[in-house]
Amino acid sequence: MPVQVKINGIKMSAEPQETVLQVARRSGVHIPTLCHLESVESTGACRVCLVEMKLGGKTQLTTSCNAGVEDGMEIMTDTPEVQKHRAANLEMMLGRAPGSQKIRALAREYGVYESAYVPSEDPAIPGCILCELCVRVCEALGHSALAAVSRGGKKYIGTPHDKPSESCVGCGACAEKCPTRCIEMTDTKKTRTIWGQTFDFVSCETCGAPVMTVRQRTHAVETKELPEDYYTTCVACKQKNLAGRFARVGS
């Protein structure tokens, strides 16, 4: 049974399993997010997707990425209250990630240019806002190489025992999805270094460019039961090859 909600005064019909963020985006309303990704569970960590929610006579702020819609909800996505507290949370995150362009730009939208906040613990990863998106992405890919370690202000992201993890395949998904791009990853033509270990690349048979790490291929081959030589060409060459084949068929 669909539920009826209002977003910024406009009536919307929504499925009960949808989140406020999904419905808002579907209706073209922009809400900023940092720690949210459709493909993984939302944890409501960064608090930047705050909206004002009126339900049953009560008005309160809530994060929209992890709030399910309920019948009769009225959502306002851009009130002064919302702006004020998005700004305050952004100031805190800017204090953690002063070098992140993304945070800086978003903070600027809310009138925050510099942060007075200096975290009292030295960060394990400079620039990390502790949103655990990397952890969730890694888990969703079936590796679970990363963990949120400790709690409160001492929390940090790391590998088990802070040592190179045997479950890490060096896919780099964490680094790519990280909102502040703070995970150190160094690629050479032949190797990738991340989370304290260096992985060899499988080189493209055609052009020699990196395809993926050897361990990543092994993992994929094992879990997807693919032939051992499945990933041998890079995406670009694969496309070229395909295009070539189509061209031949077409002629």
Partner: peptide, 11 residues
């Protein structure tokens, strides 16, 4: 996973 055990133990 070992990471879950480590994450829990350190929490």
């Amino acid at each position: 996973s070992k990471s879950r055990v480590y994450g829990v133990a350190s929490f």
